[in-house]
Design a protein around this nucleic acid. Structure first.
Lengths: 354, 354
DNA sequence: GCCTGGCACTCCGGAGACCCGACTGCTAAG
DNA sequence: CTTAGCAGTCGGGTCTCCGGAGTGCCAGGC
C-alpha cells in the first residue's frame, strides 16, 4: 500500500464516483458502468488502469476477482473529508424537523426519545441521542416539606434542576418547625458547593448539630445520594428495524451483533461518549463521521456513525448520532443530524425543561 | 373441522407429545419419530391414523404433504390448558431472580427496565414490563418554594408520590410569603380530590382570588398539567435479539414486522393492556397465555405471549410479559414470569420507591 | 507517454436437473 | 382395531452448467 498516492483530479473524480455509485446501488461498481453512467471522456480501459492504481493506494477493494470495486475505509474517509460536496437540508426535511419540535415534550427524557424517532424516520437509519450529563452541578437548595405528621417531602435542587425528590413516611410524628430548621441549616452549610462535595458525612454533621433523629438523617442522606446519581447519562435509540432494509445486514450473525449493541446501552454510550469527550466544550458543533474500523468495534466494522453535539444551556453537551452501514448517504445524514441537533438545542434552551 | 372431537387418552397423549417434541426440535414431527422416541405401545401406522384424526379435529396441521405435523393454535391451546403439566421454578432460576432484586434500583423506571433484562435473559425471549399507571390518584399536596427572589420550585404530590416538580424563573421578584399563601390556598381547595378533577379552571379560580400574577398562574397550571400527564404508562422491553435465534424469525419480513411492533411502544402497550383490563383488580395474579391469532395482530400470528400481573401497593396493577414464538416452552416461561412478577411486586412494596 | 480496442481469463450466482429421505394415506390381512 | 407393507408426494440439498460482468494485459495509434 502506498499511502502517499496523491490523487490527481481524475483519480479523485473516479473515486468520488465509485463511492457515490456504490452508496446508491449497493453493487460493486465496474469500469464499464462508470463510463456509461458518467461521462468521463475516456474509455473503460483507462478507468480500469486508474482503478487498479486506486486499489493499490488503498482506496478501493475488490470483493473477489472479476467483480467491480467497492470503497475501503480509507476510500470513504477521503470521500467524506475531501471529495463530497456538503449538502444542506431540503425544504421538506427542515419543515418536518420544525413541526416536530413545535409540539415537543418538556420532559428531557421524552424529548430525547422523540428526537431519535424523528431522526431515524428522516434518515432511514438507527438514531441515537444522549442527554447532557448533569455532572458537576452546583448545589442550590434542599427542602424538607411537612405534608402530614407522619409524612414529609424531601426535594433537592441543583443547577441542573430538581435532582431528587421523595415522599418519606416516619414512624413517629414530626414537627414542621424541625423540618424547616433542618432545611435552613443544610442550605447554609451546602450553599455554593458542587454536588460531588456533598457527602454523607456532611449531612451527618448537620443532623448531629440539630439532634435530628436517625430516621430523618438517613432519609436526607438517601436524597442526596439519589441526586448525585441523577447525573447518570440518559440515552435513547430508535429505528433498528430500518437497518433490516440494508443488504449488508441480511446476514443474521451481523444483525445479531448489532442488535446486541443497541440493547446494551452501556456499549452504545461508550461508542458515542469518546466523541463527546473529544469534542470538549464543543464550541463548534461540527458533525463528526467515523467509518468502519475507526469505530474500534469488530461488530461495527461495516458501519459508520455520524455524530453531532448539541448544547443545552448550563447542563452541558449532549450528542446526537446516526448509525448505519458504511454505505450511507453521508451528505444527507450530516445535514439531517446537524439540523436536528440545532433544533433540539433551540428547543431545550427556549422551553422550560423539567 | 369437527370441534367436538373428544380427545381420548391416547389422542391426548399423542397431541401432547407432538407439541412437546415440536417445541424442542422446531421440526415437524412424524409418526415414526414418535414411536421411536416415546414408547407408545402401538405401531407408527396407528399413530398415523390418530394424527390424521387430530388434524381433522383442528389440533394439528401439515406444512405440506409428506411432512410431519405441527400444532395449530387450537393444538397449543389444548396443550396449555389441559395437557401440559405445570412447572415450578428451578432452584437456579429462583436464586437468580432473588439475587437480581436484592440490589435492584429504587427508581420505578429503572426497576422496570432491569426486570425486563432479567426476564429476557432467563427466558431467552423478549420480555416486556409495564409499570402500574398512576391514574386516578388523589391529590395530596402542592408547594411553591422560594429559592431566590427570581426563582421558585413547584412540587405536586399525589398519592402515587411526587408527580411533578419544576424550577421556574420569574421576570420580577416574588415574595416568599405570597408563595406560601398560594400554596396553602391551593391545598385547602384541592384537598381530598382526585387528580382528574383538578383542571386549569380550578387553578385559575384560586389564583384570581389571591390576585396572583399571570406568570405564576401559568406556572402552576403547567405543574398540574404535568402531574396529570405523569400518569402515562411506563413501558420497557428487552431481549429482541433473542428472537433471532428462533428459526421462525429467520424470515426478514416477519422479523421486521416484529421489530416494528417492539419499537412502537403504543402497540406494545395495547397488546398487553387489554389483558390488564380483563384482569380487573387482579385479585389472583394468574398468568395468562395468548397464542397466535388470539393476539389479534397479523404480524404476531406466529407468536405467543405469556402475561402475568403484579400489584404495586396503592399504585395499581402492572404487567409482565414474555413474547416469543408459539413454539415456546410454556411451562417454564409461565413459572419464570410468575416468579419474577412475585419478586417484583415484593420489591416494589417493600422498598421505598421514588 | 498516455489512451484505447481487443482478447483471454476469472468468478459469482442463478437455473435446472436430480436424487434422497421423510412422510403420508391406503389397503388388505391378522 | 391394529399392523405391515407399499405406492405416492414433496421439499431440500447437491451438482452441473452457463451467462454475465468485470478484470488485466498487450499491442497499436495519436
Amino acid at each position: 500500500m502506498n499511502d502517499k498516492l496523491e490523487l490527481d483530479k481524475r483519480k479523485a473524480f473516479i473515486l468520488a464516483t465509485v463511492v457515490y455509485e456504490y452508496i446508491n446501488t449497493a453493487e460493486p461498481v465496474g469500469s464499464v458502468t462508470l463510463t456509461q453512467k458518467y461521462n468521463l471522456g475516456v474509455s473503460s480501459a483507462t478507468i480500469r488502469n486508474e482503478m487498479a492504481e486506486l486499489e493499490a493506494g488503498g482506496y478501493l477493494v475488490q470483493p473477489h476477482t472479476s467483480a467491480g470495486r467497492i470503497p475501503s475505509d480509507a476510500g470513504y474517509r477521503t470521500y467524506v473529508d475531501r471529495l463530497m460536496q456538503p449538502e444542506s437540508l431540503t425544504k421538506d426535511d427542515s419543515r418536518r424537523i420544525r413541526d416536530e419540535f413545535r409540539e415537543a415534550s418538556r420532559e428531557l427524557g421524552d424529548v430525547i426519545e422523540q428526537t431519535t424517532r424523528l431522526l431515524s424516520g428522516l434518515s432511514g437509519n438507527l438514531a441515537i441521542a444522549i442527554a447532557p450529563s448533569r455532572d458537576s452541578h452546583a448545589f442550590k437548595h434542599v427542602q424538607l416539606i411537612w405534608l402530614s405528621p407522619r409524612t414529609s417531602l424531601i426535594v433537592v435542587v441543583t443547577s441542573g434542576g430538581v435532582a431528587a425528590q421523595s415522599v418519606v413516611e416516619w414512624s413517629t410524628d414530626v414537627a414542621a418547625d424541625d423540618l424547616t430548621r433542618l432545611s435552613n441549616a443544610l442550605n447554609t452549610r451546602f450553599g455554593g458547593r458542587v454536588m460531588e462535595d456533598v457527602g454523607a458525612p456532611d449531612v451527618d454533621a448537620v443532623c448531629a448539630e440539630l439532634h435530628v433523629s436517625a430516621q430523618i438523617r438517613d432519609a436526607v442522606r438517601a436524597a442526596f445520594a439519589a441526586s448525585r446519581k441523577a447525573g447518570e447519562p440518559e440515552i435513547a435509540a430508535a429505528g433498528a428495524q430500518n437497518l433490516l432494509d440494508q443488504p449488508e445486514f441480511h446476514d443474521l450473525r451481523k444483525l445479531r451483533a448489532i442488535l446486541r449493541i443497541i440493547e446494551e446501552q452501556r456499549t452504545l454510550y461508550d461508542l458515542i461518549a469518546d466523541e463527546l469527550a473529544a469534542d470538549g466544550t464543543g464550541t463548534d458543533p461540527a458533525p463528526h463521521v467515523r467509518i468502519g474500523h475507526e469505530l474500534r468495534a469488530d461488530e461495527l466494522s461495516e458501519c459508520s456513525v455520524v455524530t453531532v453535539p448539541y448544547r443545552f444551556g448550563d447542563r452541558g453537551v449532549g450528542m446526537l448520532a446516526i448509525l448505519g452501514p458504511r454505505r450511507m448517504p453521508y451528505g444527507r445524514l450530516i445535514a439531517l443530524a446537524s439540523g436536528t441537533a440545532r433544533s433540539l438545542g433551540d428547543h431545550l434552551n427556549d422551553v422550560e425543561i423539567r
